[in-house]
């Protein structure tokens, strides 16, 4: 009885191991079915999803104009104080004072990429960009000013 159990244990054990080894052998000979991303060698062809949340950017058009009114809705929506907006008053051609942004300060090192600022923006001034290689040698480089120098608000955005 003992011998019978022993032999059946050995046979079952070996067959179960061979079953697993067959799968390994299959993928050894069918190397095309293996999917491995060769990052960073494939940087040129790497395609990230359009919605990938990498960092917050402010799109500017060809006239160096953005649509940010400086309403600070994003600043209020941000859970960790990543965004700080400094406003100034521009003088319009009619001689009136108009509120505009001086600096849109974005601290990438504090950002959790939760998308709440983009969702809160009433004028679609900011969006998420799929850049993910953020490592720099100096932490101060992660504090960015999103509005480009000399940029101004687009006509007709209130």
């Amino acid at each position: 009885m003992f011998l019978k159990d022993y032999i059946s244990d050995v046979v079952n054990g070996v067959s179960s191991l061979l079953k697993g080894m067959r799968k390994t052998g299959y993928y050894f000979t069918h190397s095309k079915e293996i999917i491995t991303e060769q990052y960073p060698d494939n940087r040129a062809t790497l395609k990230l999803a359009d919605r990938f949340k990498g960092e917050v950017v402010m799109p500017h058009d060809e006239n160096n104009e953005h649509t940010c009114t400086g309403c600070t809705a994003c600043e209020l929506a941000c859970p960790n104080g990543t965004i700080k907006i400094i406003t100034k008053f521009d003088i319009t051609p009619e001689g009136k004072k108009k509120k505009a942004i001086d600096a849109f300060i974005y601290r990438l090192e504090m950002c959790t990429l939760c998308n709440l600022c983009v969702a809160a923006c009433p004028s679609d001034a900011i969006k998420m960009a799929p850049n993910f290689e953020h490592s720099v040698f100096d932490r101060s480089k992660l504090t960015k000013i999103l509005n480009k120098p000399g940029s101004k608000i687009k006509e007709g955005i209130e």
Partner: peptide, 21 residues
């Protein structure tokens, strides 16, 4: 997840009332 929510692990796709987008 990356396509729909924009992130692979910490999605934050669900908001009170439905979905973020």
């Amino acid at each position: 997840m990356e396509d729909t929510c924009g992130a692979r692990l910490t999605m934050n796709y669900i908001v009170p009332g439905g979905l973020m987008y």
